[in-house]
Design a protein around this nucleic acid. Structure first.
Lengths: 239, 239
DNA sequence: AAGTGGTCTAGACCACTGC
DNA sequence: CAGTGGTCTAGACCACTTA
């Protein structure tokens, strides 16, 4: 009985197999601390340790006073976000830059704000958005365009029309033709976890993209924070 | 005394400020469970909870039977890995594709193996490497070239000469000119944590890069796993 | 051999949730 | 209101590391 494995690991394994085996599905309630104490004949702290294992693995959600529940399974397909050669056809044709496995229609803007802000002595229009897929928030985006370009144009409106900001920049003679993306990844901050509804150990992909027009001038600048579990970033580029 | 904060949070805050304040530096020993129990007059489990907070934040390393130690500060600068327009100058001139803030010399290969492997009815040469910076492992890489191209060339040798595999492919008339990179991020697996010496909640950046020559044929394929704390990926591309 | 962290017990009080 | 998870205590035994 008292083999290599610890008690809490064995209990955690039991519960995990209930989840991955599909006997418990998203939203279902798991046995709580008291249940585990009774079923396995262990002390409270041991039951808590078992539940902590699943919590760290991102499998469960615990709500104080309510119980422990199975988290929404993140087996959803990743959203392929294309940059480079393949991308222009998309926004050039009036479609959104997003979407592939996930259709453009299902990736929508949930919250949106447009404001002006002074950044290093330059006035910029900042468009902040939250994107959702099937009601699940997946990305926070902030897009900045110099007010000297954007002032009084559709870029300052919440709805920028077909093709989005890039198409409007093209209309204004500032079509983006060259890009530089910097990508890092890290654990989500508490604020990001809250806004993207992420578990404790969630990972985010952060992309900082600068867009340049034909003259080599910076015309747009984006800051993206994505739920790493839901994205694959694809870049096409030349030597 | 017994305000909003919990005891373990207050203790964790104390210890954290010792670390971020620089009074404890990488490798130093923290007060252990027994020390904390005595100093703060708390029970063992409370001391453990405080230490667990720092552990989750990646600030400490606990070694069973030895103690709790400050982790090597990850304030080391990120390695900027460039892809796209800026990259060709680098490998074209005989330098490595890597390096920026970190000089190319300090990013070196630590472990290396070359072997042939059959992948979907095609024989490929697989070059597996581990890269280190200042003795710290930062990346695992596997590079594949079809044996029909690489057989009998320097690509099968451990030392491929100046410019590396890309320069040798160019010598053979298969200079890579177009690339497609897929990037995801996730928590490191236990094996990756071991090979890259990473803490529990460590994040890795995974890049899958396909390289095509002038004729549009796939000539090389790379699988990279990077310590996300040490890298920023930079892509230059056109619309 | 002494000290360390890892596991475990059997209690307790609290704040919060749901009915 | 009863039940839940969050915090906390005061013990215990173990495996492991270090000297």
């Amino acid at each position: 009985m008292n083999d290599r494995q610890t008690k809490y690991q064995r209990i955690a394994d039991d519960l995990r197999s209930e989840i991955v085996g599909g006997r418990l599905v998203a939203g279902d309630r798991l046995p709580g601390e008291n249940d585990i104490m009774a079923r396995y004949g262990v002390a409270r702290m041991t039951a808590r340790q078992a539940l902590a294992v699943l919590q760290r693995e991102g499998l469960t959600d615990t709500r104080k006073g309510a119980g422990v529940f199975v988290r929404a399974s993140s087996s959803a397909p990743r959203i392929r976000r294309r940059s480079g050669r393949t991308a222009r056809e998309v926004w050039g044709s009036g479609k959104s830059i997003w979407g592939d496995e996930v259709s453009p229609d299902s990736l929508t803007v949930d919250e949106m704000s447009v404001r002006q802000k002074r950044v290093e002595d330059e006035l910029v229009v900042v468009r902040s958005r939250r994107y959702v897929v099937d009601g699940e928030p997946v990305m926070l985006a902030a897009s900045c365009v110099s007010a000297s370009i954007a002032a009084g144009t559709a870029i300052e409106r919440e709805d920028t029309g077909p093709g989005g900001v890039f198409a409007r920049l093209a209309d204004l003679g500032h079509a983006p033709v060259r890009f530089q993306s910097d990508v890092i990844a890290r654990l989500a901050t508490p604020e990001e976890r809250q806004r993207l509804d992420l578990p404790d150990n969630a990972v985010v992909l952060c992309e900082r993209r600068a867009s340049f027009d034909e003259d080599g001038d910076l015309v747009e600048f984006s800051d993206l924070v994505m739920n790493a579990a839901r994205f694959v970033l694809q870049y096409d580029y030349d030597a």
